[in-house]
C-alpha cells in the first residue's frame, strides 16, 4: 500500500522534473529571441564594431544556441546561475536578498489568506443559500473583478494619503520592531490577500457544495449528523483534492506574479527585479528569475498532487 503511494509520488516528482527541463529550454530560447544584441546594448551605440565583436567572443555569444543552452543548463545544475550582463555581478548575489523578500511577503500573505479563504469558503458552503453565503459570494466576485492595481492604489490613497496611518512605500531595510513590520507589510499583504483569497474561496465553496450533494452526505444527514459535522467530517475530506490544488495555484501566483504590487509599493521583490532585467536585456538574470518562478509553481502543484493522493484512501 505504502509502496503504491511512494511510486505515485515518485511519478509526480519525475513529471515535475521533466517539466522543469522543458521549461528551461523554452525560457532559454524565448529570452534569446528578445530583440536587440546584448553586446551592442552593453557597449552602447557608439562602440566600435571590433569592440562589439570582441565582447561577443568573450561572452560566447557566437556559439550555436544549443551549445549555449547546454552550457547554461550545466551551470544551473551545479548552482552557478551565471553573471549578470548589466552590472557584472553574480546573479546569485543579485537575487539572494530579493528572493528572501519575496518569500517573506508570500509567507505572510499565505499565513493570512489561506486560513481566511478556507474558513470563508467552508462556512459559505455550510450555510449555502443563506444571507451569509450570498454576502460572501458577492464580495468575492466583487474583489475578483477589481484589478489589483486598483486595490493597491486605493489602499495607498486611503491609508497613506488621507489617513496617514501607513507609509506609502515599503522600505524593508528600516524594519526593526514588530510595529515596523506591521506598518511596512500591512498594505502589500492586504492587497495580495484580496487578490489570492477570492479564487480560493470560490473553489473551496464549490468543491464542498459538490460533495454535499453526494449520497453519503445524505446518509450522514439521515443518521442525525449536524450541519457542521456533515461538512467537516463527511464533505471536506472528500473535497480536499480540488481545494489543495486551488490553494497551490493561488500561492504560486505570490511567487512570481506580484509585479504590480511590488511596483506600486516599491517592494524590493523578485518580480520587480525580473522586469528591470528585461529592460536591460540582462539575459542570465531573466532566465534565473523565470526558472525560480517555474520551480516554485511546480513545487506547489506537485505538493498539492501528493496531498490529494494522500487524502484519497482508494489511492493510499
Amino acid at each position: 500500500m505504502n509502496k503504491r503511494i511512494l511510486s505515485l509520488a515518485a511519478n509526480r516528482l519525475a513529471i515535475a522534473l521533466i517539466t522543469l527541463v522543458i521549461v528551461s529550454f523554452a525560457v532559454f530560447f524565448a529570452t534569446t529571441l528578445l530583440p536587440g544584441d546584448t553586446a551592442t546594448i552593453l557597449l552602447g551605440q557608439s562602440a566600435t564594431p571590433e569592440a562589439v565583436a570582441g565582447l561577443r567572443t568573450a561572452m560566447h555569444l557566437d556559439d550555436p544556441a544549443i551549445l549555449r543552452f547546454l552550457h547554461w543548463l550545466m551551470g544551473l545544475a551545479q548552482g552557478d546561475l551565471g553573471t549578470s550582463y548589466a552590472n557584472n555581478m553574480p546573479v546569485a548575489a543579485l537575487i539572494g536578498g530579493r528572493f528572501v523578500n519575496t518569500l517573506k511577503l508570500a509567507a505572510i500573505t499565505a499565513a493570512i489568506a489561506v486560513p481566511l479563504a478556507l474558513t470563508l469558503g467552508i462556512t459559505a458552503a455550510m450555510w449555502r443559500g443563506s444571507v451569509y453565503d450570498r454576502a460572501v459570494t458577492i464580495l468575492t466576485i466583487g474583489i475578483i473583478s477589481v484589478p489589483e492595481f486598483m486595490i493597491a492604489t486605493s489602499a495607498v490613497l486611503i491609508f497613506a494619503v488621507y489617513l496617514k496611518w501607513l507609509p506609502a512605500l515599503s522600505f524593508t531595510n528600516e524594519v526593526s520592531t514588530f510595529y515596523d513590520i506591521l506598518r511596512v507589510y500591512a498594505m502589500p499583504v492586504l492587497t495580495l490577500t484580496f487578490v489570492v483569497s477570492a479564487q480560493m474561496i470560490r473553489m473551496t465553496r464549490a468543491a464542498v457544495v459538490e460533495t454535499l450533494s453526494t449520497p453519503y452526505v445524505e446518509m450522514a444527514l439521515l443518521k442525525g449528523a449536524s450541519r457542521p459535522r456533515l461538512v467537516l467530517r463527511h464533505a471536506l475530506p472528500n473535497a480536499l483534492g480540488p481545494i489543495v490544488n486551488a490553494v497551490a495555484l493561488s500561492l504560486s501566483y505570490l511567487l512570481g506574479g506580484v509585479i504590480i504590487v511590488e511596483t506600486i509599493f516599491n517592494y524590493p521583490g523578485i518580480a520587480k527585479l525580473m522586469v528591470d532585467a528585461v529592460a536591460t536585456r540582462d539575459l542570465p538574470l531573466i532566465q534565473t528569475c523565470a526558472m525560480i518562478f517555474c520551480l516554485g509553481y511546480l513545487t506547489l502543484i506537485t505538493l498539492a498532487d501528493i496531498l490529494a493522493i494522500l487524502s484519497n484512501p482508494r489511492l493510499r
Partner: peptide, 8 residues
C-alpha cells in the same frame, strides 16, 4: 456503495 463515505 454510494452511501458510504469513501474517505472514512
Amino acid at each position: 456503495a454510494a452511501a458510504f463515505n469513501p474517505a472514512m
